[in-house]
């Protein structure tokens, strides 16, 4: 999302999950299945409307996320609203962890398949199309991947803060990466370090939910990468 200059799209898209979570709570099924279904349906709808209207992704996501947030806040039971917005690692069951692991593996495998096509389309859509790449299909698959990542993160840090996982590890990694391989690896490493250190910090700050602590850890890493980047530029 960061490389596509759609960082805020990823953030806003995460809020679209709220009505799906609400329906899950109301009808007594796993709310995160509802959240994922809403995310994916919204992503497909935004992709389709963007193709036929040429309105920017940012504008379409902005419109749909505010609507989804409004609907979600109205229908979600108050007691679950806080958990949906801010997440709760304490309520992650073993099956949630297994589902998250499988979803993450699928996301990594799919990313490997479309990686080169996606990079070429980012550099120049014309160049990609001239090489026979179906840019529209690649973008759809890419949006699907974003929904998978966002859905996995919602349980831990909630719909309000999950955009962090899409943006901050990636921009931190970009500060230290001369190539895509290092960028990809560092993004994943920084995401994992942020999540683990945020969760561990809850033992010191017992009244604070893990979501904000995960964000603070990630922002600290980002700040360090800015300093390292500056130092590197000054010493070269």
């Amino acid at each position: 999302m960061v490389l596509e200059k759609m960082a805020l799209v990823g953030d806003a898209l995460s809020h679209v999950a709220l009505p799906g979570l609400a329906i899950g709570y109301l009808l007594n099924f796993n709310p995160f299945i509802g959240g994922f279904a809403f995310l994916f349906a919204s992503a497909v709808m935004i992709w389709y409307v963007q193709r036929i209207t040429k309105i920017s992704f940012e504008a379409l996501v902005g419109a749909s996320f505010t609507l989804a947030l409004a609907v979600g806040i109205i229908i979600i039971p108050q007691i679950e609203l806080v958990e949906a917005l801010f997440g709760s690692i304490a309520n992650v069951a073993i099956w949630d962890a297994v589902a998250a692991t499988i979803a993450s593996i699928v996301a990594v495998l799919l990313t490997r398949i479309i990686y080169k096509k996606l990079v070429l389309a980012m550099i120049s859509e014309d160049l990609a199309i001239s090489k026979g790449i179906d840019v529209a299909k690649t973008n759809l698959l890419y949006l699907f991947l974003v929904t998978v990542v966002v859905a996995v993160g919602i349980k831990i840090i909630g719909t309000l803060l999950v955009g962090f996982l899409v943006i901050v590890p990636a921009i931190a990694a970009r500060n230290l990466s001369p190539n895509m391989l290092r960028y990809t690896v560092l993004s994943a490493v920084f995401g994992v370090i942020s999540a683990i250190s945020g969760v561990l910090l809850t033992s010191y700050f017992v009244t604070v939910p893990p979501g904000p602590l995960v964000v603070f850890s990630g922002i600290t890493i980002f700040a360090i990468t800015i300093i390292l980047n500056r130092v590197k530029k000054l010493t070269v």
Binding site: L120, D126, L127, P178, M180
Partner: peptide, 23 residues
Amino acid sequence: GYVPQNVAVSDIPISVREFLSIG
């Protein structure tokens, strides 16, 4: 073989080796 007028490379951390290996 096509060389477009504009390409967006300033924000993408891709090396020359990686770029030439696409395709």
